[in-house]
Amino acid sequence: MSVTSPVLSTAGRTIEAHWQELAVRRRLYTIGGILFMVLAMGGSFWFANESNAGKFFDRLPHVFDFIGQLVPRDGLELWRALFDLPSPYDDGSLKYNYPEGRVYVTESAYIPEYIYKMLETINIALVSTLIGFGIGFVLCFLAASNLTTRRWLRFFVRRFMEVLRAFPEIVIAGFFLAVLSLGAIPAIMAVSIHTIGALGKLFFEVVENADMRAEEGLRAAGANWVERVWFAIVPQVLPNFLSYALLRLEINVRASTIIGAVGGGGIGEALRLSISRAHEAKTLAIVLLLFCTIVAVDQFSAWLRRRLVGNQAFEFGG
């Protein structure tokens, strides 16, 4: 069948021409965008490769060597490292000194070192999330345009939260490490401050979308600002707030692990040390523990969020 182009009216021809024009422009944009991305990516990789200690193609065959380095001397070593049981290979070096890390609760009962450190990390995350929730909760109402009529206050609170959110966590941790020298407080401070900013931003967006009728009703009854917020807004937004806080908890467990690795204590530090010292069984034990914990926290949080706000829980927060 031969295809004959249909005869078009004047209007049809105009539309056809316009469509062609649009198509050409769209294609141009697409090609331009792709070209830009290719160039940007190429440049990025070249730059990354140039400024890296090892070169990509030199190192590529060896990148996954670490898997080989992770094989312990026998399968049981993993459990010995995890539960601080004595190792038959103990030669007095740090590599096999599992029982030395035991944290004794009573004379004979102990918490294995890594589980104790994992608990430390989880508690850092939990405390930070609670602190961040509390302060973010207070701040968000001051940042919401439907509750705070003073422009300057809103502006100030919003910028303040943005700075808290963007402020590099590592600097806060480093500063408090310099002052306090050790302990979990630097990590708690760093993670909490970021959490205040991140949750505050999410919270005030929720508040701004809240239904204001109840608030108006209470205003007409002579309630003051605090009472209006507490009774009219909080009941509406609390499930969403809690859902965001749980998401934040997931993120904070990871964040406090990382902060730990740069000196904040907890499991992160143990991991960094054992990887850098090539203690295969210890590394494997920590990775396993961390993996299970993160999966467990994620599952728990997802379950709770689903209960709180139903299926709209699948959001992500920064």
Binding site: A214, R219, A220, A221, Q236
Partner: peptide, 21 residues
């Protein structure tokens, strides 16, 4: 002002209750 608003109760078309309480 809030005392006056207390003395002058208001009822709304959309009720303006707190639905979750």
């Amino acid at each position: 002002l809030r005392r006056w608003q207390r003395d002058c109760a208001m009822i709304f078309q959309q009720f303006n209750l707190v639905p979750r309480l």
